[in-house]
Simulated scan of single mutants.
Amino acid sequence: MQRSLILLKPDCVQRRLIGEVISRFEAKGLQIVGLKMLQVTPELSQQHYAEHVEKPFYKSLEDFITSAPVVAIALEGLDAIGVVREMLGATNGLKAAPGTLRGDFSSSRQMNLVHASDSEESAKRELALYFKPEEFCDYTLNLVPFMRADDE
């Protein structure tokens, strides 16, 4: 099992696509183990996007991510990181395949609706930025036996 951080970015919130995005993750069989809405501060943005702070595009990235609330989600599932990234599609919504979240709802490189962790290391670091350990809810879904075999 893996956990991944998902951020529904300001454009997703402003366009009222929160429910649509969450329903796709749930339909795929991913389990929500943490969920909250928050306003990203410039300080949190700098921590989250630390590798980009010195790059020329960082200021516009910070301006965007702090412009409206985001929804932070901790998702759990088999190969959750890879599964989520496949569901999102290409970073640039114009290049994302139809059927992916970005392919269906985005036409921008920056306003691409959702951030998702790209590795287990990133997921651990990012989840710690947005959630305290006690904010995760570990529970068993009764429908798991109908979603995957015991040996998966």
Score class of each variant (00 low, 15 high):
S122T: 13
E135I: 09
A68R: 06
N92F: 05
E51V: 15
V40K: 03
S119M: 12
D150E: 07
A68W: 04
N112Y: 04
E62M: 15
F25H: 06
S106K: 04
P98Q: 08
L78W: 00
G99R: 03
I73S: 06
P42F: 07
V53Q: 08
A90I: 00
E20Y: 02
A116W: 02
M1L: 11
A50T: 12
A123Q: 07
V21M: 13
L7C: 10
S60R: 14
G34Y: 04
G29H: 09
L129D: 06
G89K: 05
Q110P: 01
F136I: 10
L35H: 05
N92E: 00
L78Q: 15
Q14N: 14
S122D: 06
E62G: 05
K59D: 01
L127H: 06
L101I: 15
L127C: 05
T41E: 00
G99A: 09
K9M: 09
E54N: 15
G93V: 09
R85V: 10
C12P: 07
K124G: 12
S67H: 12
M37Q: 13
V83A: 11
E126A: 12
M1W: 00
I18E: 03
L30F: 04
S67M: 06
E51M: 06
L101A: 07
I73K: 07
K9D: 03
K9I: 12
V13M: 13
V21Y: 05
C137L: 13
I22T: 10
V21N: 02
L94N: 11
G89H: 03
H52E: 04
F146A: 15
S108Q: 00
E86Q: 15
F105V: 09
E86T: 15
L17H: 10
H48I: 10
N92K: 04
A90P: 04
V83L: 10
I81Q: 01
M37F: 10
F131R: 04
P42M: 09
R102S: 04
D104R: 05
E51Y: 02
E20N: 05
M147L: 15
V53C: 12
A90Q: 11
K28P: 04
G99S: 11
V114N: 04
Y130A: 07
L143H: 04
S67T: 11
E86N: 13
Q14T: 11
G89Q: 02
A116E: 01
